[in-house]
């Protein structure tokens, strides 16, 4: 590897440096566009005490849900965690802490974190349990809440195509939180369906520029669907 070449050849190498107690930001919405092999690698490494930031926490047996099996997650920051029985159990036992965050606030926390903006004001959550303990300020007669941004030790991202320099494109709604997560990791790891040569991706069509990306790996994906719904 030399210069801007970010490609790594093993999942072990992709997640090298992940330690107990770190914060990991993950892309994905439900099971759509989740970095499923990077999550499996975190399970294989048995890293403990993690804070995981992701819109959801997978389902039992797939996605981030598999990190609950050996109690690797200490704290989950998410907007909706309803699809996961093990999650409920550990939450009620007090083995798992959860910080429920409005979905748009969560997205903005990642975006702002990656952009070097430490906090921002939003109307979302004013007057609700989300506002407890948070500073508010009035602008133009309307009340806003100060929300702090999020950065992670690692960001794990699922892309469609990347070139060797780490320029990434996402496919359809598998984009979701992925480009935001990609900006907010000290080490950002992207797994993709296809790695192409530098110059093959049209520059104006790139979603995540390679400057945000530290490691790229090509994987194969199950792409499980949470709710198969077809026209009757």
């Amino acid at each position: 590897m030399a210069g801007f070449d970010k490609v790594v050849l093993s999942y072990d190498e992709a997640m090298a440096g992940l330690d107990d107690g770190m914060t990991v930001i993950a892309g994905g919405f439900g099971l759509c566009g989740i970095p499923e092999n990077l999550i499996a690698e975190i399970k294989r490494r048995q890293t403990k005490g993690l804070t995981v930031v992701s819109n959801n926490c997978g389902v039992d047996g797939f996605g981030l849900g598999i990190l609950l099996e050996d109690k690797q997650i200490r704290k989950m920051v998410a907007s909706y965690v309803g699809e996961n029985a093990l999650f409920e159990k550990q939450l009620l036992n007090g083995e798992l802490e959860v910080d429920l965050t409005p979905q748009g606030t969560l997205a903005e926390k990642m975006r702002a974190g990656g952009a070097g903006i430490p906090a921002f004001y939003t109307a979302t959550g004013v007057g609700t349990p989300v506002a407890e303990g948070k500073e508010t300020r009035t602008f133009d007669g309307k009340e806003f809440l100060l929300e702090e941004s999020i950065t992670g030790d690692f960001a794990i991202v699922k892309g469609w195509k990347a070139d060797r320099y780490g320029n990434v494109m996402y496919r359809h709604t598998a984009q979701n939180f992925n480009p935001l997560a990609a900006t907010a990791g000290k080490i950002t790891v992207v797994e993709v369906e296809e790695i192409v040569e530098v110059g093959e991706l049209e520059p104006s069509q790139i979603h995540t520029p390679g400057i945000y990306v530290d490691r790229v790996i090509q994987g194969t994906f199950e792409k499980r669907i949470e709710k198969v719904t077809v026209r009757s």
Binding site: H172, L180, K227
Partner: peptide, 22 residues
């Protein structure tokens, strides 16, 4: 699998649709 709605159901996009980040 890469085309879902906010209810996590599989969907399609209409002509003239756009897709973007959260």
């Amino acid at each position: 699998a890469d085309m879902i709605n906010a209810g996590k159901q599989t969907v399609t996009a209409v002509k003239g649709a756009s897709i973007f980040s959260s």
